[in-house]
Amino acid sequence: MKNRITNLFSTKNKGILSVFYTAGFPNMDSTVTIAKLLDQSGADIIEIGIPFSDPVADGPTIQQSNKIALDNGMSVKLLIEQVKEIRKQNVKVPIILMGYLNPVMQYGIEKFVKDAAEAGADGLILPDMPLYEYEEHYKSLFEANNLCNTFLISPTTSEERIKRIDSLTKGFIYAVSASSTTGAKNTFADEQVQYFEKLNGMSLINPFLIGFGISNNHTFSKASEYSAGAIVGSAFINLLKDSKDLDTDILNFVKQLKG
C-alpha cells in the first residue's frame, strides 16, 4: 500500500494544511471526533500530539493541552486504539503522530513504529530523537513499516545540516518558522520570510511545511507562497479549548485558514 503522505505530496504541492492537536484534549474521546471533523472540513493532514509531562519545545497553549490530556488519562497505548478507531470511521487523510521521545521509548520504539503503522498512521515526528540514532537504529524499521519520518529544522539550522536532514527524511520537512517555542502569532517578520526564501531556493529533495506561529489566513497563505503549505497547532488548540460547537467551529476554522 502506498503511504498517504507521499501520495498527498505527489498530487499536491501548494496550500497543504496540516492541523495539529493533542490526543485526549479537551476530552479523552475528542481525539477521534476531531479527526473526523478535520477530515470533513478539508484539512490535508492530521497531526496528533502524544501528551508528555515536560514538553520543553512548547509554549503555554500546547503545554496546557498536554496537562489536561494527561489528567484525562491519555496514554500512548490508548492513542494507538484511537488511531484504529479513526480509520474505522473512514477518515482518509494522512495521520501523523508527534511526540517527545520518552513516552514512546517506554512503550518501546520498535513496538510503537509497528503498532502505529498497523493502526493506520502514516508518519511520525519525534523532535528530540537525534539524527544519528534514527539513522543507525530506526531508519530501516520505519521503512519496513512504510512510515514517513519528519525532522524539524529551524532558522538557526545550518545549510549543511538541512541537507543532511533532507537526506534522512521521507515525506516532508517541518520548517519551524522562528527561533521559538510553539505558539500562535499574527504575522511574519522580514527575516522569517528571508528564511523561507532561502529554503525554497535550496532545491531540497523533500517538500517542506512551515509550522510555529501560523494562526490565520494571512500567515497560512504567506507560508504557502514559499512552501508546500503549513502546520497549525496552538491556534487550533485555542479554538478547541473555547468551542461550544466543534462541528461548526472546526469547519469554519479550516475554511477561514485556507481562504
Binding site: 519545545a57 523532535p127 540514532e133 529551524s154 519551524v176
Partner: peptide, 12 residues
C-alpha cells in the same frame, strides 16, 4: 547521556 534535544536547541 547523549543530546536528545529539539532542533531549535541544536545550534546552541
Amino acid at each position: 547521556g547523549g543530546a536528545y534535544i529539539p532542533e531549535m536547541l541544536y545550534p546552541n
